[in-house]
Every structure is written in C-alpha cells, then in structure tokens.
Computed example of a mutant assay.
Amino acid sequence: MDYEQVLEQYRPMISAIIRDFNIYKDFEDYEQIAMLALWKATQIYDEERGAFSSIAYTLMKRAVGDALRKNIQAAKQTPVESDTLQHLTESSTDENETLEWLILIFEKLSPEERKLSHMYWIEEIPNEELAERFQISYDGVTKRKYRLLTKLKKIASSIQKNET
C-alpha cells in the first residue's frame, strides 16, 4: 500500500476527525498526529481483519483523542503550579526579602513536604521519578503536589496578612 496515495485519499477523513474534536488551534499538530496514525494503519493492515477505512479511522481518532486529552491535562496542571510560584515570590522585588519570605513559608512544611518541594521545583525531577522515589503511584504524586500547592497558598496568604 503506497502511503502517499492513501494519505491523499484520507485527507478529508483526517480533517473530519479533527473537526469532530472541535480543534481549531494547533490544527497542523493534530493533523500530523492523525497522519502518523494513518501511516501506522498502512503498516499493520491485514485484509482478514476488516476494511482498511475502519482501521484507519479508529487509529486516527484514538491518536488525536489521546493527544488532545494529554494537552488538556497538561494545560490544567501547569497554570496552577506556575501561578502559585509566582504568587509566592511576587510580594517583593528584593531578593533577600523574597528568600526570607520563602524560608518562613517552607519552615511551616513537614520534612516530607520540603523534600517533595525541593525535588520538584529545585531539582526539577519529573513525576514518574518522584513516584518511584516516594514509592507511590503517579496519581499519588500529583495529589500530593496539589495538596502542597494548596497549603503553600494558605501559608503565603497568612504571612502576607500578618505583614500588613
């Protein structure tokens, strides 16, 4: 099966799949994902397994959907973390004052919370490795980080109230 011919034939299907997910931003990125899935379909296609169009459609739809879910999940997590860190440090323009303020905040954390904070923000260790080091699941790491961020916000807020 010649991929170039298949690609030309299935371009309308690729566009339809992307439109089904209401994707308009980063259209080209998702188009590439669908094209890669189409190529994979040409590699694994077996006439005994059914029509090529249904296999191609399934693989492309699944690939685009998975990529979209990953991007949505990443978008949900990133702003919370970066907003919190910005919130924690924006109260002062003086580096020494900011450092003292951060020390006050981190003194209120448990040793395990300090360790997680350091490993995540300073050492920039990814969640997968944190899960291994803490011997918990990936979801457990994300839940701990969420609770830690919530706690950091509360501590920062209470320190700011006490300073004013």
Results as ranks from 00 to 15, higher is better:
138 Y>T: 12
132 E>V: 14
136 I>T: 11
17 I>R: 06
11 R>M: 15
63 A>W: 05
50 G>I: 01
85 L>S: 00
143 K>Y: 12
104 L>H: 13
137 S>Y: 08
1 M>I: 03
109 L>R: 04
118 H>G: 12
5 Q>H: 13
132 E>Y: 11
1 M>P: 02
107 E>P: 03
76 K>F: 14
27 F>H: 03
122 I>Y: 07
84 T>W: 00
83 D>Q: 08
141 V>S: 01
55 I>T: 14
26 D>T: 07
156 A>M: 07
88 L>H: 00
50 G>L: 00
100 E>T: 12
1 M>N: 03
108 K>H: 07
53 S>L: 04
42 T>L: 03
109 L>N: 03
69 R>C: 07
33 I>H: 02
127 N>W: 07
112 E>V: 14
51 A>H: 11
16 A>C: 10
17 I>F: 01
87 H>N: 15
107 E>V: 07
159 I>A: 09
128 E>Y: 08
98 T>V: 09
133 R>E: 14
91 S>D: 13
18 I>E: 00
62 R>I: 13
50 G>Q: 01
99 L>F: 15
64 V>E: 08
26 D>V: 03
115 K>C: 15
28 E>I: 06
108 K>P: 01
17 I>N: 03
47 E>K: 09
10 Y>E: 02
65 G>C: 02
19 R>G: 10
8 E>V: 10
89 T>R: 09
106 F>C: 08
152 L>Q: 00
16 A>D: 12
98 T>N: 14
54 S>N: 06
4 E>C: 06
76 K>W: 12
24 Y>K: 13
137 S>W: 04
85 L>D: 01
52 F>R: 00
94 D>S: 08
69 R>Q: 07
148 L>T: 03
114 R>I: 06
3 Y>V: 05
34 A>D: 01
8 E>P: 08
